[in-house]
Design a protein around this nucleic acid. Structure first.
Length: 248
DNA sequence: AATTGTTTATGCGAAC
DNA sequence: GTTCGCATAAACAATT
């Protein structure tokens, strides 16, 4: 008897919500972020059910992406042009599913107004950063970056990776840490397997408080570090442009 | 023009 | 009986 696997759904509708399917796709990617088209592809590759009626479910999925706070739209990095942004999971939404099971969701993930504002401020900063990058590449003088006035501070992610250049503009960052480590391996196969028996509910179950950067944070760290390296040149007050790059 | 993203509305089943 | 999570439809804006 074949063990139940992701293939065994065949043409049947898999028991996962769009939120689960999308989270699955995002988790499965090396950078923990994907453009919309890749999310579609992940789903149709694995679940034949979704190879039909694509208009219908893709509309629903897009609705889920922008409606739910657990998904974050990250501006596409300027060196990877293309259509649409990258989608990732909010760091705090990482433990959205009980025990890491995609079949059991905790209560709906909703950001508070302030949290949402902060996040939007950071994403706006990132976007304007990208614009500056592109303007610089196009040979135009870089426009003054439009940075949020509310919270200006140094991204801790850059401190980790490289010493902080003093003259860099400060960029808002995501301050949240994951609430708790997932208790189940975040591999697609592990997530698609039937759930392990739940441990008996213990009122004194210890809560791990280890601050653990989510994959999203790690990817964002790399991304920011790369951008800031460029920015360190672009935005230096007495910036002397390097010789133009050889045209390929 | 096609794709991507946002928003509003409605209905259904389960949980509270 | 109300609330919550989810699916679906649809209108529309923005982006490429």
């Amino acid at each position: 008897m074949p063990r139940p696997s992701r293939e065994s759904y065949g043409d049947q509708k898999p028991p996962y919500s769009y939120i689960s399917l999308t989270a699955m796709a995002i988790w499965s990617s090396p950078e923990r972020m994907l453009p919309l088209s890749e999310i579609y592809r992940f789903i149709t590759d694995r679940f034949p059910y979704y190879r039909r009626n694509t208009q219908r479910w893709q509309n629903s999925l897009r609705h889920n992406l922008s409606f739910n706070d657990c998904f974050v739209k990250v501006p596409r990095r300027p060196d990877r042009p293309g259509k649409g942004a990258y989608w990732t999971l909010h760091p705090q939404a990482f433990d959205m599913f009980e025990n890491g099971s995609l079949l059991r969701r905790r209560k709906r993930f909703k950001l508070q107004k302030g949290e949402k504002d902060n996040l939007n401020a950071e994403l706006a900063a990132l976007a304007s950063f990208n614009r500056a990058f592109l303007a610089r590449q196009a040979g135009a003088p870089p426009p003054p970056p439009v940075l949020p006035t509310a919270t200006m501070y140094t991204p801790p992610m850059c401190q980790q990776l490289s010493p902080e250049p003093a003259e860099l503009p400060e960029v808002a960052t995501i301050t949240m840490l994951p609430r708790e480590r997932p208790r189940r391996a975040f591999t697609i196969d592990a997530l698609l397997e039937p759930e392990p028996p739940r441990s008996p509910p213990s009122p004194t179950m210890p809560r791990l408080a280890i601050p653990m950067p989510s994959p999203y944070m790690l990817a964002a760290q790399r991304y920011h570090a790369e951008l800031l390296q460029v920015a360190a040149h672009v935005l230096r007050p007495c910036y002397i442009p390097p010789p133009p790059l050889p045209v390929a």
